[in-house]
């Protein structure tokens, strides 16, 4: 039980290669001078450099930007994360609170964070197993049994994904349409369609495959996707903010479908009902 040594070693000292601000002078960003060596870099390039420490070429950056623009930012205020931004607008909260809360909520189970992490994780594990001689049918069947589904296949509400066609078109245009992980993602879909499961691929599997083909790790891909929904959130917040306050999908009292205990009286032993004389 000597865990305090880690704290003693780090007291007033943070060893880092990530960067620092030299007030009034310069900024170092992962070992490079922000105003000189990184001068002219695009926002997407800087984001990915911050996440991975790697520099990507223009085609790769177009691919990553396409992932965000084509696939993840729908300005529909009914979608779970966007609805939080819209509710913040109708309740007259701030833009940063709206976008922050909607971004936090995007780390969800039925969409966003968990499918992002699990889809790329499955592709990595599946490829490793195949390279060791496993049969894809068995890999898929085992995953379905242990995880009760495969991240990236099947979709809440509907089974087809309208984003796959335009995303694949962009990937092919850029020369990224037939990478090893993209092929694997489609091979998995073929197995799932042939079996009794009838799961079609959704965009999570294709995006994970494209990112994996570019060498992103599971963590890097997850971090890259954290802000991916943000472009759709601002319109939802602004729309609700610019309309009358409280007007976003109001509920009247009788829209509550109560399924609980019937009416009853409280019996308490605590003396909290004394009134000052």
């Amino acid at each position: 039980m000597n865990g305090e040594q880690t704290l003693l070693d780090n007291e007033d000292r943070w060893v880092t290669g990530m960067g620092a601000w030299f007030p009034g002078e310069r900024v170092v960003f992962r070992g490079k001078d922000l105003f000189n060596e990184l001068n002219g870099i695009s926002w997407m390039g800087l984001l990915l450099y911050g996440i991975t420490g790697r520099s990507f070429d223009d085609k790769q950056l177009r691919l990553f930007e396409g992932i965000w623009t084509i696939c993840t930012s729908y300005p529909d205020p009914r979608l779970w994360n966007n609805r939080i931004a819209a509710l913040a607008g109708t309740a007259r909260s701030t833009a940063a609170l709206a976008i922050g809360a909607a971004t936090m909520a995007s780390e969800a189970s039925i969409y966003g964070g968990r499918p992002v992490v699990r889809s790329i994780d499955f592709l990595f594990r599946a490829r490793e197993l195949l390279q060791r001689g496993a049969d894809l049918q068995d890999v898929v069947a085992t995953e379905l049994k242990s995880c009760r589904g495969i991240a990236g296949y099947g979709r809440p509400l509907i089974n087809a994904d309208e984003r796959i066609k335009p995303m694949l078109a962009l990937a092919e245009e850029l020369g990224f349409g037939s990478g090893a992980y993209v092929k694997l993602a489609f091979d998995i879909e073929r197995v799932l369609l042939q079996g009794r499961w009838r799961f079609k691929m959704n965009i999570a599997a294709l995006l994970a495959a494209l990112a994996a083909d570019q060498g992103l790790t599971r963590q890097a891909y997850y971090h890259f996707m954290v802000l991916c929904f943000s472009a759709g959130m601002f319109p939802c917040y602004a729309d609700a903010l610019n309309k009358p306050e409280g007007a976003f999908f109001p509920f009247r009292c009788d829209r509550i479908d109560y399924k609980g205990c019937s009416r009853r009286k409280w019996k308490s032993s605590l003396k909290t009902d004394e009134v000052k004389q």
């Binding site: 007033d12 943070w14 880092t16 290669g17 960067g19 620092a20 170092v28 000189n36």
Partner: peptide, 14 residues
Amino acid sequence: FKDGLDLINDPGPV
């Protein structure tokens, strides 16, 4: 933590 950062890959002033 004014003097707290120990930057291991500072390229130095340009």
